[in-house]
Simulated assay, not measured.
Amino acid sequence: MNKLKVNELLRAQDWTMYGIIASIYLIWRIGTVGGWSKECWVLLLICLLGVRKDQVDVDWKKFFIFGIPLLGVFYYFYGSGNSLWWRIANWMFENNRHPWHWDDYMNAIPLNTGGWARWIANPYLDKAMVWIYNYGFVLSLWICIVRSFWTRSIKKMLSYALSGHMLQFPLILPFYNLILLHEVWYVNKQPDLLHRVFPDENSMLVATMNCFPSMHTSISFAMLLLALREKDRIFKWMMVTYCASIIFSTLYLQIHWLIDVCAGMLFAYGTVKLTDFLIRTATNKVVPEKFKLFYRQKAGVASKQISA
């Protein structure tokens, strides 16, 4: 009797509303941990305007069963990823495993410093480019993941996440371990346009190395390529504009070399194609058919099967 009452109580709950509340809270936590400014939230909201055009036909309750834990996993790695990255960077600096030093070579190539990007420089554009660069490394990815969450697509969430930091971090480490290349401003003894404060010389060296390829470029360009696959034109053009601005900011602020940027774009293209292959292989050979059938069924059919 008690079991029947519990079942009735559970069926009477509005689980869809609970899922929406939990999702909004988790997204808010992501922005809070990332220190998002109000401009970040405005950009996210604009990108969500046409989300219905890309939603897949999946019941919200079924999606939340998998979507919320997956978003939580991404949130966990987001919170711990920054410290992990800096531990790796410090380890590479302390062990000095860089057989190739490229500062002089890169500086000798005409137009490679990207100084030509500053022909329109002014204080207002400087401020805008600093904001774009500082947030661009993670915001471009999170906007795409959060939007794919509201499209109710696990596949899209995985596609954006894998094409971003999850695959790019391990794949880019061999380049950073073999090639020592410092930021443009540091090599040319110019002021740091990001106005960073370094406690000592070693901290500055760690922060200004690992330039080839540009990961700001590779993350944003991967998101741009995937965003072009969506139907909503507002989202596509917003992401094209924003991601292109991130890439431009790396040159405008004298952070990355032009060759870094080109290499970052090629690296991003390869990562996206690798992600497509992995997801296609997993979908066809790894994911059980029962799971796919349950996930695709309409809400009424699934509820009848669960009740039975």
Rank of each mutant, 00 (worst) to 15 (best):
I279Y: 04
Y242A: 02
L274H: 14
M215S: 03
C243G: 10
E230Y: 15
T217Q: 00
T241H: 11
E230I: 04
A244F: 03
R229M: 07
A299M: 04
L258A: 06
K231N: 14
R233C: 04
L226F: 04
T283L: 01
D276Q: 13
A263P: 06
Q254A: 09
F294A: 12
V286Y: 09
F277A: 07
L258C: 10
F294R: 14
L293E: 12
Q254M: 12
T281V: 05
K292Q: 15
I279M: 03
S214L: 03
I246N: 00
Y252R: 08
I259V: 12
D232S: 15
W237S: 05
I247L: 13
T241W: 06
F248N: 05
D276E: 15
E289N: 05
W257E: 08
M239L: 11
L228M: 14
L251W: 11
F235G: 01
F294G: 08
L274W: 09
T241I: 13
T217N: 01
K231I: 02
L278V: 09
C211G: 13
G264S: 07
L251K: 07
I219M: 13
C211K: 00
W257H: 04
N284P: 09
F221E: 07
M239D: 08
Y295S: 10
V261W: 12
R280S: 10
I255M: 14
K292L: 12
F248D: 01
L266R: 03
Y269G: 09
G270I: 08
I255N: 10
L274G: 05
S214F: 06
K273V: 03
R229I: 06
I234V: 15
S245H: 03
H216R: 12
S220W: 14
K285M: 01
L225Q: 10
T217W: 01
L258W: 10
R280P: 05
D232G: 05
A244Y: 08
R233M: 14
M238S: 13
N284F: 04
P288W: 07
I246T: 01
T217I: 00
M238Q: 15
D260C: 07
R280H: 07
C211T: 09
W237L: 04
A263R: 03
V240M: 15
A268G: 10
M223D: 02
E230G: 03
L278S: 05
C243Y: 10
M215K: 01
K236H: 13
R229E: 12
T283E: 14
E230A: 06
H256E: 12
T250S: 13
L224S: 06
K298G: 15
I259S: 00
Y269T: 15
F235D: 05
K236M: 13
W257Q: 01
I246R: 00
L258Q: 13
R280V: 04
L278H: 02
W237E: 01
I259K: 06
L278W: 13
C262F: 13
S245Y: 00
L278I: 09
Y242H: 09
L278E: 07
Y295H: 15
T283G: 10
M265V: 10
C243H: 10
